[in-house]
Design a protein around this nucleic acid. Sequence first.
DNA 1: ACCGGCTGTCAAAACCGCGTCAGGCCCATC
DNA 2: GATGGGCCTGACGCGGTTTTGACAGCCGGT
Lengths: 226, 226
Amino acid sequence: MTLVLVVDDDIQIARALRINLSARGYRVAVAHDGAEALRAAAKARPDLVVLDLRLPGTDGISVISSLRAWTVTPIVVLSGRTDETTKIAALDAGADDYVTKPFGMDELLARIRAALRRSAVAARQADEPLVDTGSFSVDLGVKKVWRQGAEVHLTPTEWGMLELLVRNRGRLVTQKQLLADVWGPQYAGRSHYLRIYIAQLRQKLEPDPARPRHLITEPGMGYRLA
Amino acid sequence: MTLVLVVDDDIQIARALRINLSARGYRVAVAHDGAEALRAAAKARPDLVVLDLRLPGTDGISVISSLRAWTVTPIVVLSGRTDETTKIAALDAGADDYVTKPFGMDELLARIRAALRRSAVAARQADEPLVDTGSFSVDLGVKKVWRQGAEVHLTPTEWGMLELLVRNRGRLVTQKQLLADVWGPQYAGRSHYLRIYIAQLRQKLEPDPARPRHLITEPGMGYRLA
DNA sequence: ACCGGCTGTCAAAACCGCGTCAGGCCCATC
DNA sequence: GATGGGCCTGACGCGGTTTTGACAGCCGGT
């Protein structure tokens, strides 16, 4: 799950951010000064940092520089200072965005989403999003599937279903979601299709297709990748 | 050199941007409405787009969506509208940043630098100029191809396809990606073209064109360079 | 035990995508 | 005006994919 590190000495703001981010499904870590922030970032490897520039002791800009020395995780700066000079210094030090207080929570959340989306795009090309279930492994970036070392050929529809299940690994994917994602929203209700293609995926990927261990049916609801 | 596409119907602002960006060493293209912007983006492939949301005719948000359908080039929105709803809509449609008028030129330039820096990090992946498949080798720098020691002549279109495949060696390149990159985003669906040119590339590059070993078809999805 | 709803299986039929060939257009060159 | 290379268009056959239909098994409720 996505982890956001909030760095702010203002208890009110830190609290408000924690509540709102948690409600949106992010995990949240909090630090209250620069030194703590650097320690927390090194240890927890957050996917994004929200950083207040006015911190006790440390200078905010140098916190940005210290982070940028070893990580490219997005940094969204939050600040009371509206002067251009500070904004430019922060952005050039490596910040990804700069929001001035007072700020609208919804806007900040949208900017966080935008920053995360960008880094997700970058990561999808760089990293190897290789998922391994134990019986077979899937590379989402390259669009390939292996089973026992050998590559398995999937048709486009099979791949579409598997991709959605892999992206939601462990979670239940409803029949409606699957049909909407692979065939289109107007195909809701054609659960017949799902049975056909789940069966085919099990044939190709499960060690014992009759006793599925990974492509699990949740009766009445949908399917889940274990 | 870095190319920035400025989309603004306000002549003053477009002029000011052109001057300031040029002075900073960027190449600048200008469009004055949404349709022109989409055409220019497809043709010139800018490294970044500065987009005014209030355009004659077109809705700015839909311009963002249209661009995002085929490119990840950073989009910095410039707008007179300060309401949160619009900001959020623009960011969620795929904008990377949102600057409200009146804006400080230096801040805007800093935000542009920040956006370009991010995408540069992502782009620094495919920087391997000489690629060898075993049957033929490609030099992306000088745009040449050899097979069995002899240079092979490719037409511009053939080269465009091969280049994209080489840059994504091993990973699946979808038909949409190929068409958008070589012909332009409005050619999505013309998969016929791909078959013609893949066939020609195979004739020129594969040891046995009837049994391709490198230019692999992934039926229904796209092609892959092995 | 019977039924309805849901899931899994099988096979045939309809459909679509790929590769291929041939021909026509455009444009630069001679 | 003729030539030729490069690009686009149309038609066709083949093979694989998707869709359809029919049937069997499982389970909870009646």
